[in-house]
């Protein structure tokens, strides 16, 4: 008995030793900046005024700032629309890529290209598409003898425009992760299900989806946190307009950072962090990962 407990101790110690460098990186590069941001958010921190401690005043101001609420609503709506969209499309693409056909390898590589393109570049691409005077979209409308549309000119148009641009770029990411999950499902299960008389939809809902669940949750988690932080595509495509209609919380915070109001911007960022953190916890609970490990 004594020997056993000594043995476990040593293993644990070794484990901690191996993890230590990673933990240090995590603490130094992630926890410290987060703590710093939280600290800054309770100060009035502008370069032309003395730095004073104001407690929750920044947060109170944020809650009274209509621009903040607008950004928050936009961000949440953006997540609510784009994440399911990308996941469903990604799943569709993954299902297709999971079949065996000639040229599959090349198609899999090609599918990743939009994701590999930097967000700023893909923003420019869509800018060219949506451009009123010489954009591809209006060119197509002209071919159909229709009036050119100011795609980014209305709040809803701009919203859908950025959702489309973002989905184009990030759907491949979802597709590849889901594809990995799909290929982990043994082919034998499907053969068995066919013999058991299950049709295509039945096989999908009773076998594929349940077995895909952990991977699906991971995909949703990644995409949700990324969508919460959406910035690049907005900065390039709409600049947050028209009339602030497509300003995300990130962009909102950025404007204040770049104007020098670090305290206010930090508070907005902390709120964003809090939301992302909460959603992550929800996802982890849904995924039941700890149960799987046990």
């Amino acid at each position: 008995m004594k020997k056993t407990s000594f043995h476990i101790d040593r293993e644990t110690r070794a484990g901690i030793g191996f993890l230590a460098p990673l933990l240090l990186c995590l603490i130094g590069l992630i926890l410290v900046p987060v703590a710093g941001t939280i600290a800054t958010s309770v100060f009035r921190d502008v370069p032309y005024l003395p730095k004073t401690f104001i407690g929750a005043a920044n947060y109170v101001s944020l809650l009274n700032d209509p621009a903040f609420w607008r950004s928050l609503m936009f961000t949440l709506l953006f997540v609510l629309v784009s994440v399911p969209l990308e996941t469903v499309f990604g799943l569709g693409i993954a299902l297709v890529l999971n079949q065996v056909f000639a040229g599959r390898g090349m198609l899999r590589a090609a599918v990743l290209i939009p994701w590999a393109v930097p967000a700023a570049v893909s923003g420019r691409i869509f800018e060219l598409i949506y451009n009123y005077s010489y954009g591809a979209a209006n060119r197509m409308l002209a071919l159909l003898h229709m009036e050119p549309a100011n795609w980014l000119g209305s709040a809803s148009g701009a919203f859908l425009g950025v959702v489309a641009a973002d989905a184009w770029k990030t759907t491949p990411f979802a597709a590849i992760i889901l594809l990995a999950g799909l290929s982990a499902i043994p082919e034998d299960l499907y053969r068995q299900a066919r013999v058991d008389r299950a049709g295509t939809f039945q096989r999908f809902f009773r076998i594929t989806l349940p077995l895909l669940r952990p991977v699906l949750i991971v995909t949703l988690l990644f995409r949700t946190v990324d969508a919460l932080r959406v910035f690049d595509i907005l900065y390039v495509l709409t600049g947050g307009g028209p009339g602030g209609a497509t300003t995300s919380l990130s962009l909102f915070g950025y404007r204040y950072f770049s104007a020098g109001d670090f305290g206010y911007a930090s508070a907005a960022t902390v709120i964003l962090f809090g939301i992302a953190f909460l959603l992550s916890l929800v996802y982890l609970k849904l995924g039941g990962f700890s149960r799987e490990i046990r």
């Binding site: 053969r191 013999v195 058991d196 009773r206 076998i207 349940p210």
Partner: peptide, 27 residues
């Protein structure tokens, strides 16, 4: 296969890992 009244046992047994034994048999 669904239209033929055959049943099959594979070498890997192909048991649906997310279901209980009851559900597998009832499938």
């Amino acid at each position: 296969p669904g239209a033929r009244n055959v049943a099959m046992v594979f070498q890997s047994y192909a048991l649906y890992p997310h279901l209980s034994v009851y559900d597998i048999i009832a499938f």
